[in-house]
């Protein structure tokens, strides 16, 4: 985590007088606080944004009163409410597992923020296996979902957990295969390295590196990542209308808030992965380098998140077998075609 300290040039005087151990601890806490702040702010903003988008798609207006301007403080009001609410644990629930599940889900979303490259020198930890790390960490959330479903001791929640288990084996392979063409194009697994390869304008982005194959791979990655974050049309573990919110039916108060925050953080993370791998990360489309990196990255990520929300309020939920069909029989063969096609394209063209 020391990259952050060097990159942000934290006041040298502050750290110089301290022993290396204490300094490292301070840096670690600062990094964690920064990531936590981004996670929380991002979650609150996306919740409000989604409510606005869903409302306007349905000819409504969404929250309008809290904060006077289009209800911009609504998420804070909701957050305070959830904090103050009683955390109800069902009598027959597995108490410890029940409490642990939201933390596992939240941790996986939280840890995935670590190798996100925000700018040339703005990254918490530039892991040399960044992409692999994110793919591994975000998959952990499925375990938390299954834990929640099991611990609730509620048949609908258990169904939700089971569906999450069935879903993870379906979407993980298309996701993995859709990541590969970008990695072939940039020959590195480090998130920062992938972004650096794509410098110099939109024509250098990975999405165009492998001809049609990388474009299709980007689409496949986006679709499969919707299943990864349990968003409509692949929100089978939640399934409000059939499973009464599935795995988090029994959750209330802060535990519910953790699930909610984790969902929106995961949305953000998969959008970051897609934009870093295929859309040039913090490089702007014209290769001018005028705008600061975080702004450019945020613009791309919010665009992708908007599309996620747009999908959610357009498509009805798929059946379990339809999801399996899509993942196994359409996206997986397509992934293989993309990998080999992109590889040949990169060598031959």
């Amino acid at each position: 985590m020391s990259e952050l300290a060097q990159n942000l040039t934290l006041p040298g005087a502050l750290l110089a007088g301290l022993s290396p151990g204490v300094a490292a601890m301070l840096v670690m806490f600062a990094s964690c606080a920064a990531v936590l702040g981004v996670v929380a702010l991002n979650g609150m903003f996306l919740v409000w944004w989604e409510r606005k988008i869903s409302a306007h798609i349905q000819s409504r207006v969404g929250p309008m009163t809290t904060g006077y301007w289009h209800g911009w403080l609504q998420s804070i009001a909701d957050g305070v409410k959830l904090l103050l609410k009683e955390n109800i644990i069902p009598l027959m629930a597995d108490r410890w597992l029940f409490m642990l599940a939201p933390l596992v889900v939240f941790m996986s979303a939280f840890m995935a923020f670590v190798p996100i490259p925000w700018g040339e020198k703005l990254i918490v930890a530039d892991l040399n296996v960044g992409v692999l790390y994110i793919a591994a960490i975000t998959s952990l959330s499925a375990i938390g979902v299954i834990m929640a479903g099991w611990a609730s001791n509620n048949k609908w929640s258990l169904y939700g957990g089971m569906r999450a288990a069935a879903q993870i084996v379906s979407y993980e392979i298309p996701v993995g295969l859709a990541l590969v063409p970008a990695l072939l194009a940039s020959s590195t697994l480090s998130m920062q390295g992938i972004v650096e390869v794509q410098a110099g304008g939109i024509w250098n982005w990975n999405i165009f590196a492998g001809g049609p194959f990388t474009i299709v791979a980007f689409g496949a990655l986006f679709l499969a990542s919707l299943a990864e974050v349990n968003r409509a049309p692949f929100d089978l573990p939640e399934a409000e209308s059939e499973l009464v919110c599935g795995f988090h039916t029994e959750y209330s108060g802060m535990c519910f808030a953790f699930f909610f925050l984790a969902e929106y953080s995961e949305m953000f993370v998969v959008a970051v992965v897609a934009s870093v791998l295929y859309l040039g990360g913090w490089h702007d489309p014209l290769g001018l380098g005028i705008l600061p990196g975080p702004v450019v990255l945020m613009a791309k990520v919010l665009l992708l998140v908007f599309v996620q929300m747009w999908f959610r309020w357009t498509f009805p939920r798929l059946r379990v077998d339809q999801l399996m069909y899509l993942a196994w029989k359409v996206l997986t063969p397509l992934g293989f075609i993309n990998v080999f096609g992109a590889a040949f394209w990169l060598i031959l063209v």
Partner: peptide, 21 residues
């Protein structure tokens, strides 16, 4: 059909809301 559906919802995104405050 997915693209057709997305076009419909995107159109509605910018239509005037029917909500009365």
């Amino acid at each position: 059909s997915a693209v057709a559906g997305l076009r419909v919802t995107f159109g509605y995104l910018f239509k005037k809301s029917v909500t009365v405050h």
